[in-house]
Design a binder for these strands. Structure first.
Lengths: 131, 131
DNA sequence: GCCATTAGTTACTTTTTGGTTACCACTATT
DNA sequence: AATAGTGGTAACCAAAAAGTAACTAATGGC
């Protein structure tokens, strides 16, 4: 289960960034967590097309790269909260710009409004992904 | 050979961006082209760990997403030049910020200086990836 | 006539990623 | 006594991405 990274012989920081967030689910996970912590099950509900196995795996990788904090509460049934670290918070504005870029570059696509860190308002989760 | 996109039921522009550049090679390709056009063979030389098949495929996808312009010259042997479109040029500052983010978030890694669109100087290609 | 050159393509194999189902621990509720 | 609820894990399988090697077209140089 070793993680596969792109060869990065010259230590290019862009390659490193893409190693960390350049895949199918991670930006979405960070985006959903951008307004506060969330439980595993909630993430799974908001991203219904991801399997539990893969979600677990992505969360682990994000945690090991220092982007997520995982807090496990000793309760029954279990409760685990995921939240962004400072590192991840520093990435949010860039994710926002990636979003903005798509809006400008592909105006014909009429995207939804991106809700990342917008005036501290919570995103309308129920409209983002429906079960 | 149909392209697989992430499900994007709510037309999130971040998901769209990741569909377009969120993979192993595309940011590197854009980065290498950020100082001007380049031939297929040169790209392949500068990214020696990519196979010709995959490079061809990535270039096609970037072209079909409107990020690259492909100019084929009727010469023997063939000559094909790839260059960035306006869309792609608009993305460069964001790529630069992704780079900068890694530098700040992982200071222990001592990355190389990112050379994207830096004062119009050409990147020192030979130091980026060696054959 | 033979070889080198370039930008691919094709067929085939391997690696990587993602999905499915069943299962677990522990308690509260019915 | 059975079931629901949560956050997983394990075994197994399917799909996607990537790698490899051989091949091509058309021309110039030897």
């Amino acid at each position: 289960m070793a993680r596969k990274y792109i060869d990065n012989p010259n230590a290019c920081s862009l390659v490193h960034t893409m190693n960390i967030i350049g895949n199918k689910w991670k930006p979405i996970i960070l985006y959903l967590l951008s307004n506060g912590s969330m439980r595993f099950g909630m993430l799974n509900t908001l991203i219904p097309t991801i399997s539990k196995k893969v979600l677990t795996n992505q969360l682990k990788e994000l945690e090991s790269d220092g982007l997520l904090l995982r807090q496990s509460f000793a309760e029954i049934p279990p409760r685990v909260e995921y939240s962004l670290t400072e590192k991840a918070i520093g990435l949010l504005p860039v994710l926002r710009q990636l979003s903005d870029w798509a809006n400008e570059a592909y105006p014909e696509m009429e995207f939804e409004q991106c809700r990342i860190i917008e005036n501290g308002k919570k995103p309308a989760y129920n409209n983002v992904y429906k079960k």
